[in-house]
Nucleic acid binder design. Structure first.
Lengths: 222, 222
DNA sequence: TGTCAACTGTCAGAGGCTGTCACTAGCCTC
DNA sequence: GAGGCTAGTGACAGCCTCTGACAGTTGACA
């Protein structure tokens, strides 16, 4: 913390953020007005908009951290790994280390409730999907560079990333509506779903009495 | 067309829709106000909101048709096909028959420009992704029923549909920014991308021919 | 033709968001 | 350490989307 001015600013931003998230998760995003948030922090509505581009921007403050965290993880993967391996290990690593990256801004518990709130609020859910699309575009470029291909002529980078992202989203969706809403649970769910993509895509599920339902049982991964 | 009243209503809705789309594609979605649309049709702003839930609703009028068209196509696939086959043939069929399904509402050319406008407008792009997520949920249930599995315990239906949808989206994205913006082009692009998913997922792109990581690789069916 | 219901316009207002302007408080220099 | 500078803020006005309420108009139908 540098000057007094900066400390004051930081405190205001922090108060606005926490108050906003707290109100969003308790009484719902749509039923929370900017006036209300500003009033609780005892600043003018105008000031809220000086710190956040809008209500939505406040809601996505923490998710933004996890996105950056994930992108950084991908960037750090050793180049020998196949694209799919690199992506898989990146998400896994991210889920392992995200908690402490968040804790310095807001309590992890508040983050988890925010996450669920986003998933349950149509307007925010849509915004989230768009953000993910943007993140995927960035990651596709990283993968393309690693592999030494041109993302504008070779569709493979965008394809792997998009397919991988789709699986992640199905896992996260399941997670957000389920009961065990812990970071351990999402790790297992993600690993399990990634293992099941192959079988799910390959051929006929009904054929062969061998494996009627090889599905739902998640095997705890390494 | 039945009564005079119904004809009048239809004419108003039609005028509002076309005027809205025309303005959206020419001067941009964000720079078009509801007041402006209403003024051109010479109705009150309030009337616009009686016909459309909002600006966004008007923008998605035609895309809604194509979504329904696609879902119907999936529903009609013969049950012997594998899930992936059914999905692939459904999109292909949809693109073959969508033009005439649209033409009775708005000119196909206007639809195509609207499509591009949605893809280029962040707010609409987000809404589009959310709509697709909802459509995918519906299709996953259709697939689950065909295959006789429970979508709430078996993740495979949602996985195939999500992965398939991801590929489609990459193809459509490429289409929307490319030069050849015809329905023929999107058909070829879709087919091509679907064929490339397998190779893209499988192993190491740099190593020639061999497949060091056969793990998650699905065998792309016809 | 008169009644009823549907459709519309007008008005008022909430809520998100932006521009402007003046004022205060921290910062920095002399 | 006094005064100038500027970042940060509040107050106000205004635009735009969207909704509710009420009254007027116009087609439907007996």
């Amino acid at each position: 913390m540098e000057t007094l001015r900066e400390r004051k600013k930081q405190r205001t931003r922090d108060a606005l953020l926490r108050t906003a998230l707290e109100l969003f998760v308790t009484q719902g995003y749509e039923h929370t007005t900017v006036d209300e948030i500003a009033a609780r922090v005892d600043v003018s509505q105008r000031t809220f908009f000086r710190y956040f581009a809008g209500k939505e921007d406040a809601a996505f403050f923490v998710p933004r951290l996890t996105e950056e965290h994930y992108v950084e993880a991908v960037r750090r993967r050793p180049p020998e790994e196949t694209p799919l391996d690199a992506l898989r290990r990146s998400v896994m690593d991210s889920w392992d280390t995200i908690e402490q990256a968040i804790e310095s801004y807001v309590p992890v518990e508040l983050f988890l409730r925010t996450y669920k709130m986003i998933e349950a609020t149509p307007a925010l859910f849509a915004a989230r999907l768009r953000r993910q699309a943007e993140t995927e575009e960035e990651i596709a470029r990283i993968i393309a560079e690693r592999e030494g291909v041109d993302p504008d002529t070779d569709p493979r980078p965008r394809l792997v990333v998009a397919v991988f992202g789709a699986v992640i989203r199905v896992a996260e969706r399941h997670w957000s509506v389920g009961e065990d809403f812990s970071t351990t649970a999402i790790r297992e769910l993600t690993a399990s779903y990634l293992d099941q993509v192959g079988p799910a895509l390959a051929g006929n599920w009904r054929a062969g009495g061998t494996r009627p339902h090889p599905a739902a049982a998640p095997s705890t991964p390494a």
